[in-house]
Design a protein around this nucleic acid. Sequence first.
RNA 1: GCGGUAGUGGCGGAAUCGGCAGACGCGCACGGUUGAGGGCCGUGUGGGUAACACCGUGGAGGUUCAAGUCCUCUCUACCGCACCA
Length: 824
Amino acid sequence: MKQYYDFKNIEPKWQQAWEDSHLFSTTETDEKEKFYLLEMFPYPSGKLHMGHVRNYSIGDVIARFLKMQGYNVLHPMGWDSFGLPAENAAIKHGAHPAEWTKQNISEMRTQLKQLGFSYDWNREVATYSEDYYKWMQWIFIQFFKKGLAYKKENPVNWCPSCQTVLANEQVVEGRCERCSAEVTKKNLSQWYLKITDYADRLLKDLDKLDGWPEKVRLMQRNWIGKSEGAELDFDIKGKTEKLRVFTTRVDTLFGVTYMVLAPEHPYVKTLAKGTPQEGQVLAYIEKCAKMSDIQRTSTTNEKTGEFLGCYAINPINGKEVPIYISDYVLMDYGTGAVMGVPAHDERDFEFATKFGLDIIPVVDPRDPAIDVNDLKAAFVAQGEMINSGKYDGMDNVSGIAAITKDLADQGLGEKMVNFRLRDWLISRQRYWGTPIPMIFCESCGWVPEKEENLPVKLPVDVKFTGKGESPLATSAVFSKVDCPVCGKPAKRELDTMDTFLDSSWYYLRYCDAGNDQEAFSKEKADYWMAVDQYIGGVEHAILHLLYSRFFTKVFYDLGLCSVDEPFTNLLTQGMVLKDGSKMSKSLGNVVSPEEIIEKYGADTARLFILFASPPEKELEWSDAGVEGSYRFINRVYRLVEEMAEITKEIPLSYKAEGKEDLSLSFVMNNTVKRVTSDIRERFNFNTAISAIMELVNEMYRYKELDDINLGLLADATDRLVRMLSPFIPHVTEEMWAALGHKESVYLATWPSFDPAALIRDTVEIVVQVNGKVREHVTVASGLDRDAFTQTVLEDQRVATLLQNKQVVKIIAVPDKLLNAVVKG
RNA sequence: GCGGUAGUGGCGGAAUCGGCAGACGCGCACGGUUGAGGGCCGUGUGGGUAACACCGUGGAGGUUCAAGUCCUCUCUACCGCACCA
């Protein structure tokens, strides 16, 4: 392919010029409206992939566009640079994780600069640097002081391959989110953040986030999983303990025919003690303990369980029901105990059928097709209450309120809300993360390191074995410390933090990146926050986006910032595919940004990625499509070069006259209008680009005419270059300079359009007969309905079309269409 | 199982409020320019027909003067959640 414009020279030249003039650095000012545009920062894994290029190209177009529209734009970049791959590389190659990470950052930073993104590199942040993790530790201590960080021993998710614990959110279908190894359970003492304290606010405030995709809000809603119900106490026959259960269906209380506890429930061993069933019960508990989450939570499993040998007493009617244990009851949700209502719960129905327990219907479907006394499956929909004493005849929804109130009045139960969301387990038994700044003292318990001693630095004398305990334990010096409270010898926490903590506040650090006195100043955070537009992959819909919302709310409560939601608008970009599937090394379908930049230049890569698909959709990579984008840039380049030559001395003031002038003027103004709204309101860069292509086609056509208006053509060229500059910044700088400008096109204003030029005297409209297009006629524009109808009907061809036909009805849409409904 | 999103030419996609389906690009075909090739410029390109007619937005119904767009049912693909009481 012939190279017309010399991108290999042009691109580095302008990148250097931008850097030398600090073009993209931003400061706070009241003179302009601020706009905080943020793309999710990358993990420095080695080199950029196409997903990065797509993410950052989208962001860069918006940033440059808004800058030209007069906003004070904050557009920063940094590195999510703690994490396991660095440590694994260290184990494999013997180098320190910092070396590996530093090397990758340097390489990826170079690539980002090669792509011409308008980042304010003065604000660059790397989470592995001491001046970042110092403040991470400070933040952790504030959480601790507020009672939002605690340590407890619990069965936790353990990834045997990564050799560390995982948060609930990092377990996907029972497997490690990172490496897909099957997750097992381990009883360990670990640090947690109390995100559950914020469950209600995290849920409620989703309603405020109308700039987020509904899909993401829904995923978060489901993840938080609020359910409203009641807790009630069942007495146990012959014992003093009471069994507390949580249910959303108190209306089915008369239908309880058994009770079932989680195998881990604290009462189980005592209740079974001395019963004939004790042996089987203990064996069952043993069996469950050995199962992985995948086995245990599989819905295809047949129900299993054991009778405990004792009975519970239903508080509403005094009825005795047998108590079982079964692994379908989870200890960490609700109370770990469930009342069994086989008639109205699918799982209970299955369990009761298996164990031959009674099935008592208490809600009547009022459907002749269903025989309540011979249910083939649980009936879970709404209906009328039966077999429920004084509540009979009530609809079951009212029944919930009525029974809850009656039980509460008698002190037997209370309204209760439960969440699916669990507290966030943040300890990791790994080296390459922020050390948890906590110290254990025999006399004082867990106390935080003194703030003036931060950061607690990662020790360098450690061994990376990838096995067993935390690598920090292998340091000879790290753990030994004096208690900050009483001064006695004490020990440091040896685990590091989940790296998702680091990425939960980086957007605040960008506001005040160099600050060595605070994590960020409130003043600067208040100026920039919230992030006006956030852009990234949908894979972060739960983890990162939920944690960041949690952090922001805590900061808000601590008075550190004035917003309680971090991201006002969210754009989730689709994946980059090749041959129908995600680019991956194992499939061998990876196209590297490097080779595309080498062959076509950064501008072509950016243009193709934005043109091929709207940002939320998946993007199918096409080498031929890249060629097309390259061809288009060449076409524009030739046009602008020619225009620069011809129009050098032409002033921009001109008068558009005649059909062809008005036509080009219309297309030019309309293109500005379309492109502006496509970028600003819809983020549909693909249609913005195609509109610009249409303008270019029109300009090519126009310039070959006999009598052309050079002023008009110069104006079109000027607007064309401005409009293209956010997409293809390097080559448009070159064009802009060729057109005689001394300043960067980045500092130019975004073109406006003249609404008067969009009004045309005549308009081509469609004439339909019975809804089918039959004629196109040209009429004066702006007529009212009657005048429009009359004018169209007077048209000779329309009259011919309708002669000998009986017109029943005329539908007229002025300036658009006329539809004649005819008979015969 | 529950929830969500999407299905439009050979391909990526467009149609923003119910009003000309297929913009723009790729590919393909033909013509021009050229010593040739490449490149560039131009024309054509949903199916169908000699030309009309007619058919056409996953499928089947429906509402409407008018449906890719709204409603009902249904198929397929992808995504999320999944024994949460």
